[in-house]
């Protein structure tokens, strides 16, 4: 398929799916951390590679990312990204430690991975219930490095021409100043199937 056939209605529908997924993910995290989390912005947009790879201010910005592969009825990718300070803050909450005391050791990485797993799992579960499709998620994989590098493989695999369709949710937990971005990218054929499943076939 070519993304040129996607119209504003399709993007709105994908944004709505993003809302459903993100709502579920935020509730799961709020419950897990027992704190209020606000969902800031849900976007579904056709972006150029470089817009998609620059979610934070620079392609070299150091971030923590938790990645899960989506398989089953659809093929796609979920990546939850936090600036490193936010990743430390969220791991600190889980481990009952001050973020300043934390190193990115095995314990911290495991905590970050678990949070990414819970959020992405809730997000995808909500999509699955809504669309009636079955998804499987890989175990979470975590990495801390440059923002663009964590995204480039996923962007490469889901791109059509010089564009990629990204469903992106920004979340902020105000009390603890944690900012994170959850991105979902479906492989092009899967995106088509996803739209069909909600009666919005291209």
């Amino acid at each position: 398929m070519g993304y040129e056939k996607l119209e504003a209605d399709h993007l709105d529908a994908l944004k709505e799916l993003g809302n459903i997924g993100a709502g579920n993910a935020v509730t799961a995290l709020s419950t897990f951390l027992n704190t209020e989390i606000n969902m800031e912005v849900v976007e579904a947009k056709l972006a150029t590679f470089n817009e998609a790879a620059n979610i934070f201010d620079s392609p070299e910005k150091e971030v923590a990312g938790v990645y899960l592969a989506i398989s089953g009825d659809l093929k796609g990718h979920v990546l939850y990204l936090w600036p490193v300070q936010s990743a430390k803050a969220i791991a600190g909450m889980l481990m009952g430690m001050s973020p300043d005391e934390l190193e990115f050791d095995e314990m911290t990485m495991s905590a970050i991975s678990e949070i990414g797993n819970i959020m992405s799992g809730s997000y995808i579960t909500a999509l699955s219930s809504f669309t009636g499709m079955t998804f499987e998620l890989s175990p979470p994989a975590v990495a801390i490095d440059m923002n663009s590098a964590l995204l480039d493989g996923i962007i490469s695999l889901t791109a059509v021409g010089d564009k990629v369709l990204i469903i992106q949710t920004s979340m902020i937990a105000y009390g603890i100043r944690i900012a994170g971005v959850l991105v979902v990218l479906f492989e092009p054929d899967s995106l088509l199937k996803l739209l069909e499943s909600i009666g919005m076939g291209v």
Binding site: A69, A149, L150
Partner: peptide
């Protein structure tokens, strides 16, 4: 290979 995954196209 940024993420240690075993079953993805990545």
């Amino acid at each position: 290979k940024m993420f240690n995954v075993s079953e993805s196209s990545l």
